[in-house]
Each structure stands twice: as structure tokens, then as C-alpha cells.
């Protein structure tokens, strides 16, 4: 049996009367690409945010790499090797693409209580940044401020930033949101490469991409896991069809 990189136990998160994460348990195996699907409002983003520490659960536990991280602040989880991309692009808008990625590298290369030397001239940080940018196809856009990047480029930059922290587990929240057809295809190709190197949790609405990429799929509805298994099992699961896939013709067509 493969080891578990991430183990979520009975996670609960409420927003007032609304239960956004409902007694959710989940395991992510080292090396797999684990997709999480579910209708809008199912609680996918809320789950990711609890895994990376932007949100704290009301109860339940999260274990990562053998350590209980339930109450750890997000910056410490990043140090352990958890990285995420945001569904709604979250970048340093008044910095260049290279600065965004170099800062992510800097966070994981010694401390930053250095007040004198010019950080933009630290070759290792710049090289790490350019490597990550090249990885996502943004090498030529390194010195462009984020505010001048296209939406697609910003999505790619989100990924480069996450990669620059050298994560053990990459949590991607709808990386294809708002991308055009060719951009989406590029992203899928990129994820196919990345999955060889790093364990990935992928939240995505693009069913074609999900079924092409995932080793396992977890289906979330109203904050609850209604199914978890290999793509074929999910496709043929009656409950999934009824609750979610039924009105998503895309899946039957691609399936």
C-alpha cells in the first residue's frame, strides 16, 4: 500500500448556518494526481483553503507528511511543502512576474531578515525564478509587471509561484478557469509533465481535463464526499451521475 502524503479526517467548517465542509475525510497518496470535482458551491475552495491554512476548520484533523498540521499557520505549512494556486488569481500586482516567483524561492532559501544586499541581484533566486517561469512558458515575460499580464499568463504565473516553493504537494484550484482552448491545452500538457515530479490535488471543472489527468477522483456535493475512486468507477457511479454528472453532458460525451 502506497503511503499517504495527506490525510484529512472528519473535517467540518461552517459559515454561519451553512456547512461548507461536512465531516469530510480524504486521503492523498504520494505521487498521485487526485482530482476533486463537484458543482459550484460544493466547498472545493473552502477545502483547499483549510488544507493550506488560509481558513481554519471548526473540527477535524489534517495530517501532512506524517505531521498534524490542523492548527499550523499557512506560512509554516508552506515550509513543510504545501503549495497552492488560487482560483481567483492572487499575485503581487505591482511586482514583475520574475519578482513574484523569486520571492517564492526566497521564502524557501534561508531567512529574509537581510537588510542590506540587493535581493534582485541574488543569482540563485533569479535563476530559480527563471527556471519556474520557463517551466510554465513565461520566460519571455519575466520583467513584465503582473498588472500587464493577460489573464492566461497570470494563471500560469500562479502555477510558477507555487512551483518555486518546491512543494511536495501542489493544490491547484481551478487552474484552467477562464482560459481559452489553446491555453487550456497548454495547461493540461504542463500538468501531465508536473505530475511526474510532484503529488497534485486538482480542483477543476473541465471534465475532459480531469478524466485525462486524474489517478483518482473525489466527488464533493454540499461539502460531503459522495464518491472517491478511479475515473472509471466515478463515471459509472450512480450516485455521482444523479447528484452531479447527470446534468453535465460533457462527461458522458467524453466518457
Amino acid at each position: 500500500m502506497a503511503e499517504h502524503l495527506l490525510r484529512v479526517e472528519n473535517l467540518m467548517r461552517r459559515f454561519g448556518g451553512l456547512v461548507a465542509t461536512d465531516n469530510l475525510s480524504l486521503e492523498v497518496v504520494t505521487g498521485e494526481l487526485h482530482a476533486i470535482i463537484g458543482p459550484n458551491g460544493a466547498g472545493k475552495t473552502t477545502l483547499i483553503s483549510q488544507l493550506t491554512g488560509q481558513l481554519m476548520p471548526n473540527s477535524g484533523a489534517i495530517h501532512f507528511a506524517g505531521q498534524d498540521i490542523t492548527t499550523l499557520p499557512s506560512y509554516k505549512r508552506s515550509g513543510l511543502g504545501l503549495a497552492r494556486s488560487f482560483q481567483i488569481t492572487s499575485l503581487l500586482r505591482d511586482f514583475t512576474a520574475a519578482d513574484n516567483v523569486a520571492l517564492a524561492a526566497q521564502a524557501h532559501a534561508g531567512h529574509s531578515y537581510r537588510f542590506w544586499g540587493n535581493a534582485r541581484k541574488e543569482a540563485p533566486l533569479r535563476e530559480a525564478a527563471h527556471a519556474a517561469l520557463a517551466r510554465v512558458g513565461l520566460a519571455k515575460r519575466a520583467d513584465v509587471p503582473v498588472s500587464e499580464l493577460s489573464h492566461g499568463e497570470q494563471r500560469e504565473l500562479e502555477l510558477a509561484v507555487a512551483l518555486a516553493t518546491k512543494p511536495k504537494l501542489l493544490l491547484l484550484d481551478e487552474p484552467m478557469a477562464g482560459l481559452g482552448v489553446t491555453e487550456s491545452q497548454r495547461m493540461v500538457a504542463l500538468l501531465k509533465e508536473l505530475r511526474k515530479e510532484v503529488t497534485i490535488v486538482l480542483v477543476e471543472h473541465d471534465m475532459e481535463a480531469v478524466f485525462a489527468l486524474a489517478d483518482r477522483i473525489t466527488v464533493l456535493v454540499y461539502g460531503r464526499v459522495i464518491a472517491c475512486g478511479k475515473p472509471d468507477e466515478i463515471r459509472n457511479n450512480d450516485e455521482v451521475k444523479r447528484a452531479y454528472l447527470g446534468d453535465q453532458h460533457a462527461v458522458t460525451r467524453h466518457g
Binding site: 488560509q54 499557520p73 506560512y75 492572487s90 503581487l92 521564502a107 529574509s112 509561484v161 516553493t165
Partner: peptide, 13 residues
């Protein structure tokens, strides 16, 4: 510029 992002990449803002 973006506190949430800085926390997420590992800085104790």
C-alpha cells in the same frame, strides 16, 4: 501588495 499570497508562499507577514 498581497498579504495572503505572501503567507501562502511561506512568509510570516
Amino acid at each position: 501588495s498581497n498579504e495572503q499570497r505572501m503567507q501562502a508562499i511561506g512568509f510570516h507577514a
